[in-house]
Design a protein around this nucleic acid. Structure first.
Lengths: 112, 112
DNA sequence: TTTAAATACATAAGAATCTTATGTATTTTT
DNA sequence: AAAAATACATAAGATTCTTATGTATTTAAA
């Protein structure tokens, strides 16, 4: 991530899982664009962070991969398998809890 | 942190700064207890994370240190200097923005 | 009263996750 | 024709944490 990198550290895998959950299947480059779009240009996911994270999620048995040929170029489409969907729900709960706890400790008002 | 460690990674220095801002002066052990209290026992700051973080903030020129003797034991009281107060405000803004952006990307409802 | 738990500091090895830099190659835009 | 965007990938290094260990005093429990 370029922007608040220290803070986003740790939430990347959750972001990837959630986007795959919402969109069915996505390829790496598409994910970087989506994150930028959703954050209105504020969050830029770097490739050096994304691809290793995708490979790790795959190695952890959470993702399915399908390579598609577009012209002479390959796209690796990722999607969630059953374990991936379960993990997504878990991670989203963890992030929600994390936000609540962080707001409690920092005495921050919830962001409306 | 014991609990959501990957997520809390990066927010520790902000937590320390904010607690010092609120409480004037605190010593390390006191900070761990305060975090536990504020999070209702959910967040446990480990000493292996805390002390290096305090030393770094001090090395960065954000903290004042005063050693006090309680019986035969030493306490290192930390407090914010001017630069520390400025940095605290900056970091708190960063965390607020981070939470908003994370909620946007993950399509989470704000936590009321 | 002696043992365990709490208080209070500290550091060091290792793990995890990211940044930065670099590389390759194709396609589209200028 | 050149530059930018698309699309993947990896590797060295930085940062920040975990886990383990160490020292020492004070308080609570057995």
């Amino acid at each position: 991530m370029k922007q608040n990198s220290q803070l986003f550290k740790g939430s990347l895998s959750t972001i990837i899982l959630k986007l795959l959950d919402e969109n069915g299947k996505m390829y790496g480059y598409e994910i970087t664009k989506k994150v930028k779009e959703l954050s209105k240009g504020n969050v830029e996911l770097t490739e050096g962070a994304l691809y290793p994270a995708l490979h790790k999620l795959e190695a952890d048995g959470l993702l399915e991969v399908k390579i598609e040929n577009i012209g002479n170029r390959n796209r690796k489409y990722y999607s969630l398998n059953k374990a991936g969907k379960k993990e997504t729900n878990l991670k989203l709960k963890e992030v929600s809890d994390f936000i609540i706890q962080l707001q409690q400790v920092l005495n921050l008002k919830p962001t409306y």
